[in-house]
Write a protein that binds this DNA or RNA. Structure first.
Lengths: 260, 260
DNA sequence: CGTGCGGTTGATGTAAATCAACCCATGTGG
DNA sequence: CCACATGGGTTGATTTACATCAACCGCACG
């Protein structure tokens, strides 16, 4: 229930180019996880103009109904999209991790159809839409990468539908954790154990269509099975392979190495 | 449980141009529902080369894991995307209506991440990817429309997540019916009553994350309330306004008149 | 004219929600 | 430095929405 006050994003005051210091590495790597970019293209991306924004946990980045005129990239921290429903419930419909672009959509749609909120403290690179449009115009591979990124997010959304619609609480939670570990390890290789999960139990509930209480009990059972570990409020993935088995996880939908 | 045999789509044998007879009107109108296209662009779209395919109910159009080399457009009939889960359950993740493009995704992603199946008998216009790519290259407004279409489908997917994750059976069913009525009436005006719903109760169940039995009982209650009408196996929307109220429906996510 | 799919209905089971305490770590102000 | 407030988290008792199981029905169609 802690919907915090907003810090609406405006056009970057003076297009301060923190360009040179490689803050966009993250973003480039994300695009490379599913798209092919020449080293020239990659260098060009690193020169995109942006202004840096720091937001605290729970601050809003976009609100439903707004018209966005900039595109934030998530340099560090986590964020999520969510929608509210009449009776006060909310559903998280996407989780964004460091390197993810947060709003390519506003290049094409006038109105934002969901809320975008910081999960942890975040650093954003706020890029003017015009700069992105220009780069997409001049560099077809970049344009392709943008669309591919949109499509991969849509694919993840479809898998979430399956997850919420058809899997029980245990498999559902396990599946989400598998996806998170995969995504946090941008490399194509099966990822290491001990990934940290930065969500509270309430947030997990809002993401998985369950209640916090039930998340708690389900986590407990996963811990007893040895699949996760918890110390205090910190949640870690302990046995990735076991989680994959519980969730019947397949990573096809993430479209890793789409380019071969 | 009636997963029927496939009629996998291949490259159109001889690019038979049924061009002139306006079969792509549907498709153009769909794009116009969210995008701006000059009359010149519209004319050009109507000249896209395609070959006509007729499929019966339940025939597969695409299968998970395949590599598609053509893009089918749905001229008439209904189709749906779905994914299967380990225990035999399935989740429908998108419903496609006449005029909808069925696989822009394969322009950018190598592997199909879901199954695409005919719901009713369908007519498909199968367009070679190369022709679409060429047109997107030459006509930026068309390229924009393609991406916008992708984004609107993704937006609908997010709303489905909210629907399945957070609404009870009654509101969930009502919400889906509202969406269907809206989409079937491509005009921006609030649509008329008495729309026909072409899904069986089992399909509704697979789409809404419920069981057929529960769909049956929920439909019964909606009928008693006067929101829908049923004669035999035919289901109709009787009171659209009431359904909207039950579902707390807002059409923002459909991005109608995005250009208006 | 039978056969089967889709629909309908009732009885029963159960996963998850709800309600309600209480706990603990952390942070904050007196 | 303690008093207290606060936001997670944990746990048990109870309720409930939906699933499951099992018949049976009736139209459509081959």
């Amino acid at each position: 229930m802690d919907r915090q006050s907003s810090a609406a994003l405006s056009e970057p005051s003076a297009a301060s180019s923190d360009v040179a210091d490689g803050r966009l590495d993250n973003f480039t790597r994300k695009l490379l996880s599913h798209s092919l970019l020449s080293t020239d293209d990659q260098r060009a991306i690193l020169t995109l103009p942006f202004s840096l924004r720091l937001l605290g946990p729970n601050e809003y980045i976009l609100r439903e109904g707004e018209q966005a005129r900039v595109c934030p990239l998530l340099l560090s921290g986590f964020a999520y999209r969510h929608k509210l429903v009449a009776d006060g419930g909310r559903q998280i419909v996407a989780l964004k991790i460091p390197g993810d672009p947060l709003d390519f959509q506003s290049l094409y749609l006038r109105r934002v159809d969901h809320n975008l909120q910081a999960l942890t403290a975040v650093e954003l690179a706020v890029v003017p839409l015009a700069a992105l449009e220009k780069m997409a115009m001049e560099r077809p591979a970049f344009a392709r990468a943008v669309i591919t990124d949109i499509l991969v997010e849509a694919s993840i959304g479809r898998e979430w539908l399956v997850n919420i619609g058809r899997r029980n609480a245990t498999a559902r939670l396990a599946h989400f954790l598998c996806e998170l570990v995969y995504r946090l390890n941008q490399t194509a290789s099966p990822p290491a154990d001990e990934s940290d999960v930065p969500l509270t139990q309430e947030q997990l509930a809002d993401l998985l269509g369950l209640t916090p209480v039930h998340i708690n009990r389900t986590l407990k059972r996963l811990e007893e099975a040895g699949a996760v570990r918890r110390k205090g409020r910190r949640l870690k993935v302990a046995d990735f392979a076991m989680l994959c088995r519980i969730a019947d996880f397949s990573d096809l939908y993430l479209h890793r190495g789409n380019v071969g």
